[in-house]
Nucleic acid binder design. Structure first.
Lengths: 222, 222
DNA sequence: TCGTCAATTTTGATTAATCAAAATTACACC
DNA sequence: GGTGTAATTTTGATTAATCAAAATTGACGA
């Protein structure tokens, strides 16, 4: 019984949902899941019960859902495919990083293992995709680096952009046009809670200001 | 109402079915369609009636089905995608020509126009795929060369393999291992109806014998 | 303790795609 | 012209995925 694209999408959404859980939570709420997938809450309930039946998730009524080991393995596989495909489309095919998400979203469910292996090989077993998101290994491990956001990193200190955690095309174009893509070195000069903003110096020396919402999507390493 | 993968597959099957019609026929029989798609005959009937409702096909009960102009346009688009993707996977990704069919079959329904355009550009607007099958143009024209099979081409005359009309992986591996891929020059030395076979000289000078069934799948130009 | 409200689950329906098996039709042959 | 066969269509069901709206639950504040 190989999983349908729909099942794969549920698992993937739960997987990333788990990584977004604040503090000691271990269950992804149904509402959040339904929201992430853009479906009605009742639909999510029905589907999750079926996933639980297949031992892909643990489901606690009214509390939420969590992946089992089997579910985690499948989810990691899908995420691996997605990120490899994104990198491939940018690196090999020459598409822009803001236009590859939808193609990857579709292709991740349908391409053969042989094609994924070829892509992985062509790209030299990469560890991160064009957005700096880590690529799960073939055996399902998700490498984890601890990164800081522009809201928490040290001031007046050069840091390197490592990851951009937003797939929105307009946001990505903004990042690119201001030279803030992963790999670029920048420096946070000031933060201001009142104006809800962060001021920073871009690689070319240009100063600019971001809202905290946007700033929280840029992850950096010291 | 963009067409589902299923609808695209029906249209594609009717499209290629039409090209296989003998003499003056203009309708693809339901049985043949169902067979090509691997579905029950009743299912084909139901679906074709729906396609007729959407003006993608003309349907004559008990006689068969034919594409309308709109259906033809869609079918050509899918076939174009399929063949461009196959060539891409061979040429750029380095997959073998006998292993790209299934990936192309899936990807043809899901990749963006932007990706197809990039692929077409990378490949230099190619006219044929790795099997020598012509690639429909972006506006839906299917370039047609008149080719002969090994059953009809002149004897004792060098001819160039132009097309292999069978997607079966084992057959393709056979063709490759005997140096009979498109572009190779060969010569038919004899045909024999009784033994149902064709004898030919491969590029390396090696003599070999094919059954007429296999020989009919090799198309050549003088 | 109790009521309220938001989140969740249930219920009842719908759509697309499919099958098996029964009914029908076309046609060719005697 | 009748008849049998093969192709085709109909019929009745099934599965996966979905929605809207009604019912339920659980937690929190009064």
């Amino acid at each position: 019984m190989l999983p349908s694209s729909t099942v794969e999408n549920y698992l993937k959404a739960i997987y990333v949902g788990e990584t977004h859980l604040t503090d000691g939570q271990k269950l992804v709420p149904m509402g959040q899941l339904a929201g992430a997938l853009g479906i009605a809450p009742g639909t999510a309930t029905t589907m999750v019960k079926a996933l639980a039946e297949s031992d892909l998730v643990d489901y606690e009524p009214y509390n939420g859902v969590r992946l089992t080991a089997a579910g985690q393995k499948l989810a990691a596989r899908v995420l691996r495919r997605h990120r490899l495909i994104e990198l491939f489309l940018v690196q090999v095919v020459g598409m822009k990083w803001d236009e590859v998400h939808d193609d990857a979203e579709q292709m991740e469910h349908v391409v053969s293992d042989a094609l994924i292996e070829r892509i992985d090989e062509m790209l030299g077993r990469p560890e991160v995709d064009p957005h700096g998101d880590p690529i799960p290994t073939a055996d399902g491990q998700l490498p984890h680096r601890t990164l800081e956001t522009l809201l928490t990193c040290p001031l007046h200190t050069p840091v390197t952009v490592a990851r951009v955690t937003d797939q929105d095309a307009a946001f990505l174009r903004f990042i690119e046009s201001h030279n803030l893509k992963p790999g670029q070195t920048i420096e946070v000069e000031a933060r201001d809670d009142v104006s809800d903003s962060v001021r920073l110096k871009a690689p070319n020396g240009v100063r600019m200001t971001l809202g905290t919402r946007a700033a929280s999507k840029l992850l950096v390493t010291g």
